[in-house]
Nucleic acid binder design. Structure first.
Lengths: 211, 211
DNA sequence: TTGAATATGTGAAACTAATCACGACATTTC
DNA sequence: GAAATGTCGTGATTAGTTTCACATATTCAA
């Protein structure tokens, strides 16, 4: 809650920087300039310097940034020391992809439980994560603040209401439905069909222009 | 190539509008106001009116928009009449989700072939889409302009180069790698781990603020 | 036919973000 | 230790996007 002045655009790039710095460190690099970083993450170097500057003077003129220092700083800032528990709702194709994806690699975010309407899947597990019946949502979810929604659009509103009533704070919504939530709940929409259509639109209408 | 003046932010919302208008039509609704639309897609009504206005005066004062007219207009604008063929690279968990997802529903985008490095998967099919060996990429891809990349990050650069050499124009990149492409190729990155981390960051640092 | 209600389209303002460009300082080289 | 080089941090500028607010046109009910 400290730094409400950090632009959202900056905040969205932080995880990207963090992951790349991790790579650098495991390669044994000790210093990096905004120019090098820029080439790797495809963000303008001035933007990177500006982004970092919101957190204070993290670099050294004429030298660049110390990888270890920067990494330690971001670890704290991105709450990497604290594990965030996530619930996955809907173990279909996309949900399965999430369960098998190893989120722990550079990332202190972990799916700790999953739910599905299919009673065949209930009380099994996948990738070490227990799968419960959606009927047991209220009973099991207790305390988890973030949910990934990978269910059919028709179910989205009903499930969202139940999540909200059980204290969820953030939803990563992969359904095409634009769900309605109270102001204190944050939703990020990722709509795969829209992303693909938007790409196709840009290809046809914005030739040779970088995004 | 007609309207280069349309803001990218607007272009990204068009598929969303399009899908919702489709829903309205199948519900038999003939008119809709920017306010109703706003509630459904969670975009400010003034923004919707502004977005539509880039294409001319599509509505009527005191009435709103005619659903059928608007839909017909967008169909043309979003190239819905023309099928865009897509290749899927990498039939892992996420790739499988794409293959089984029915993109044709509101959407003239279709995955027409898939590739995988696993020889077990080669020359099979899934969801009606043929899967080829990645070794046959050059031989088979011929003419397809859009690719979805759902492969391990370590493979991303190599495969991207091969795609680019074979005339790809757009890539929807789900790998964490920030791939390097020539200026005439458009890449949209969707990084699931970053999206989740960004959501968690916002939850902790921007309480009660909508995105 | 009239008047109240409705809802667009848009100029202007506000907000948000990206980029330029350069002073200041650290490092490296000779 | 002086000069050349490199790189940050940031004021200023530019670009892009959203939102306000209202004149204008249309609809609808009586």
């Amino acid at each position: 809650m400290e730094q409400n002045k950090i632009p959202q655009a900056t905040a969205k790039r932080l995880p990207l920087y963090y992951r790349f710095l991790n790579n650098l460190q495991s390669q044994g690099k000790t210093r990096v300039s905004s120019k090098e970083l820029s080439e790797a993450v495809k963000v303008d170097s001035a933007t990177i310097r500006r982004d970092f500057s919101y957190f204070g003077a993290l670099g050294k003129k004429g030298y660049g940034y110390n990888v270890e220092y920067l990494l330690g700083f971001f670890r704290k800032t991105l709450d990497q020391d604290e594990l965030t528990e996530v619930a996955l709702i809907g173990v279909g194709n996309l949900g399965t992809a999430f369960l098998k994806y190893n989120f722990m690699k550079n990332n202190n975010t972990k799916i700790v439980m999953a739910f599905d309407a299919d009673e065949e899947k209930a009380n099994t597990e996948m990738g070490g994560v227990p799968i419960y019946s959606i009927d047991d949502l209220e009973e099991k979810i207790n305390g988890v603040k973030v949910a990934i929604l990978t269910i059919p659009a028709s179910e989205a509103d009903g499930i969202t209401d139940r999540l909200v009533r059980n204290g969820i704070g953030g939803i990563l919504n992969f359904t095409p439905a634009r769900i309605t939530v109270p102001d204190h709940v944050r939703v990020h929409h990722i709509d795969l069909a829209v992303e693909l259509q938007a790409l196709v639109y840009f290809l046809k209408h914005y030739p040779l222009v970088e995004q």
